[in-house]
Design a protein around this nucleic acid. Structure first.
Lengths: 124, 124
DNA sequence: CGGCATCCTATCGGATACTG
DNA sequence: CAGTATCCGATAGGATGCCG
């Protein structure tokens, strides 16, 4: 178990940077985008996101929970059931991320075309 | 020099994921946010972003240029001068990212408060 | 000035095994 | 089911040196 990392060494010059990095982290974006629609259980979320390992999903959820973006509701039942949903703060973040994700989907074809053009310009 | 990596192995299930990851990459976000305001030269951008190494900035700029987000204008003068500016596609991306960055700045204090509360709840 | 190549370390992140 | 712990390979990313 990792303890007591000296955060003073690599602390970002601006504290908002750390927040932005959590929101825009590889799996953070996708988790927020998913939860934008509705609340999810752990493994349900894992399937929905797709391609994320158990470890990284758990880690991502913890980070986002700590930042106050989402609520973790662990029901005391057997088998365990844990639901994740957005807080008000998280909803605001998810709105932004959702918009970005939607835009990306709409424009993906253009990006792919740009890549082809870029590569062709150098290979030629 | 690295060549011919087998992309079929780790290709994202959805091509838009790759695009989203470029836009939301650690330095990509900040570069787009900077260029949202105006165009920049390389080292000017480096100072403005702050904390980014020469290597990573160059790499980030290439990725974003290849994706069609920005224009690289290398003037044939001594000493060299290279200007980076957004394309129309890049402007759309930068708008999204800019909004997210602004939101993050506004809400950073709330996130920090949430972290303190979260940590206090476990430290007991 | 604006890169590129090299080296090297830290962190990311997947696979596996284990637990309540 | 929903995690945690551990191991380990892959990648991010900094430092340095060289070049047009």
């Amino acid at each position: 178990m990792e303890v007591s990392v000296d955060v003073t060494v690599k602390a970002p010059m601006c504290p908002s940077r750390g927040v932005l990095e959590h929101v825009t982290s590889r799996w953070g974006v996708l988790v927020l985008a998913c939860l934008h629609e509705r609340s999810y259980r752990f493994s349900e979320l894992r399937r929905e996101v797709g391609g994320v390992s158990e470890k990284m999903l758990a880690q991502t959820l913890q980070t986002l929970e700590r930042d106050g973006f989402l609520l973790r509701d662990a029901k005391p039942v057997i088998p365990p059931r844990v639901d994740y949903s957005l807080t008000e703060l998280g909803r605001e973040a998810a709105d932004q991320v959702w918009a970005l994700a939607r835009w990306t989907e709409r424009r993906t074809a253009d990006v792919q075309a740009a890549r082809v053009a870029y590569d062709a310009a150098r290979a030629g």
